[in-house]
Amino acid sequence: MTTARPVLDLRGVTRTLPSGDSPLTILHAVDLVIQPGEFVAILGPSGSGKSTLLGIMAGLDRPSAGEVYLDGEPLHSLSEDALALVRRRKLGFVFQSFQLLPNLTAKENVLLPIELSGVRDPGARATALLAAVGLGARGHHYPVQLSGGEQQRVALARAFASEPPLLLADEPTGNLDSTNGTAVMTLLEELRARHGTTFVLVTHDPALAARAERQIHLRDGRVERDELRASRPGLRSA
């Protein structure tokens, strides 16, 4: 079930950082294609370049060399403004530390991306999303009034709020106990399935990665292994 255009297409992506006399290379000419609807886990030990790769996929960071296409948009050459617009329309995020805006209520946190995308009746949509993550009654609470698991569920609702084609998650259960972690992960997969969203998960937890259809192992900034785990094809193309 492939489509003509991949959601993500990374070509020879290299990222170096200045460090003392010789620059430090975090990513070495990474090539990667992710098709619509895939659930991909990016695995690797600490310092393997997972987060850097995720940042570049999201247009939060720029490659030092190489090209990045998100749904056909050349992220490597867009201005900051254009990148912001791409994130607004095409990306949802879930972070390890939830990253809710502390001075907004749960509902307002969910509302913000909906309002930004200019959808009609954003309130009803935000309410529906909160109900979908089981927090229909907690919309008026501020993040500090919610438990970690609840905060992450609000973050999930926010991530799906603008119905982005691509969802990026960085250790989404890293700050949660196992019960909450499992609950959040299950919810995430449900939502993904319901919305048909492409999902890239960065983690160092093999158990979590095992839920993905495709696993990409990073080591020292290079793709060490790229393996399909389920029947669904996640094809690699050159």
Partner: peptide, 16 residues
Amino acid sequence: LDSLAVLACLGFRPRE
């Protein structure tokens, strides 16, 4: 600073 970064992730442009 964290909130600012989140706003940027949500698609706020620098001038916004």
